[in-house]
Design a protein around this nucleic acid. Structure first.
Lengths: 245, 245
DNA sequence: ATTTGTGAATCGGTTCACAGCG
DNA sequence: CGCTGTGAACCGATTCACAAAT
């Protein structure tokens, strides 16, 4: 009911907690955003929760609930205006501004991330590559110079970096994170296979490749185990329960 | 109370649902495993739920609940035997066998994953690198040959690959996944920035770098917004509420 | 004395189902 | 009439708190 006006009022209101958006919703907004951008590229101007759900690989109730946390941006009987939703989600995600990132640890992964197109695309700008290895320092990845990690404080401040991407070895990661935090970095994305400790005002997310594989391994193994049991003929009694007419 | 004996009985039992381990627990087991391995390397033989919790960056109640799904492997008043826990978690995760992986799409990321030490470490063996680019086909990454993706069916079967790692562009990913599934791959780890559709018997996990950054951006932005409001002096009334004596 | 293992309470998130609105 | 927005019901996961075990 109270669309634009309430939105503005809320922004200027003295109510701090405002509309607290659930973490799970925050994690899905980028997914919706990507689907919506693809839609505009294909010329779609309006989309229903059902349509967006299909594109994003979730269900429509979730889409509606999620979007309702941002405000009432849909039109009943019609759907959502794609362009307008893109704007609202972008704003909510803080993508209307650029974020400067530094990558620490320029091994294979750091190198890959350094020239990963798709970072740049949505306002993430790699402003420094840092490493401790004198052999690497002074060389280039793409057109980005690898600089001495020892200079991290100066570099982070000078270039207003707020996001640190850690792609060091596991053992170097905590030290790297500590220095990044000391330099004023407010968010860290950790690819190193270790649990990082950061002050609570610093946001931390992690991506662990080998853990992902181990999770797949679990389900794979469970499938195999179940099949083994079934083939072994042990389940005849309870299996008959699942027999369909 | 019923430790080893019940464990064995359960394994051979006709009860299918057995001990269904919650997804959230499965996702943490690799974390515990890594901490435990580090502990043996440092010579620790016994650990309490509290100790493991600290190492893995979770709380001790969670550790106890999680481990209780695997069985009663701890000793009250003492803790868990590190070596034994490693064995049990490894077995549960299916890490007592090797898993063969193929990587599809040998760009920067595919290349980085191809020579990522840490895959190999825990029983994941990269058995093929596949791409469609004739310029890449026939060249090597480390000592692994890049082969024609068109051969995926033959290669997956011959080398008994069960995990496919997709590092193609977003637009090529679904096609790659379809071919992988058709070839008999049972698990897919997707790095491409797109939502993949796979049959429900295929396990799917995804890692999306730009989504992770966007999530960080949200929290970063929210911090900045809050600070702005506070500095703007708008919160004096409610802020006084939080003043401490 | 100490630490596990686990019911019970709680929390956050998802899904349902429908009233409200264009 | 169709689709959004949202209370209510539900479900899975987390946390609490303590009895059981050694």
């Amino acid at each position: 009911m109270p669309t634009i006006d309430e939105r503005i009022l809320l922004r200027g209101d003295e109510n701090v907690k405002e509309r607290a958006i659930p973490e799970a919703t925050v994690a899905r907004l980028p997914l919706y955003l990507r689907s919506l951008v693809e839609m505009t590229e294909r010329g779609t101007t309006t989309v229903s929760s059902e349509g967006l759900a299909t594109a994003a690989g979730v269900n429509s109730a979730k889409v509606r609930k999620d979007l309702s946390y941002l405000g009432s941006y849909g039109t009943r009987g019609v759907g959502y205006d794609v362009e307008y939703l893109i704007y609202q989600i972008s704003r909510e995600l803080g993508l209307t501004q650029d974020w400067n990132c530094v990558i620490v640890g320029i091994g294979n992964l750091g190198r890959a991330l350094a020239n990963y197109r798709g970072f740049g695309s949505r306002g993430f700008r790699v402003v420094a590559l840092l490493d401790v290895d004198p052999v690497k320092i002074g060389t280039y990845v793409d057109d980005l110079l690898i600089e001495d990690f020892d200079e991290v404080e100066r570099i982070v401040k000078e270039r207003r970096a707020s996001i640190g991407i850690v792609t060091t070895t596991g053992s170097a990661a905590q030290g790297a994170a500590d220095r990044l935090v000391a330099s004023g970095v407010k968010s860290i994305l950790n690819f190193a296979p270790t649990v990082l400790q950061v002050p609570e005002e610093v946001s931390l997310r992690k991506v662990d490749l080998s853990i992902e594989l181990q999770i797949l391994s679990f389900y794979e193994q469970r499938k195999a185990a179940l099949e083994g049991v079934l083939r072994g003929g042990r389940l005849t009694a309870s299996a008959s329960k699942s027999t369909r007419p």
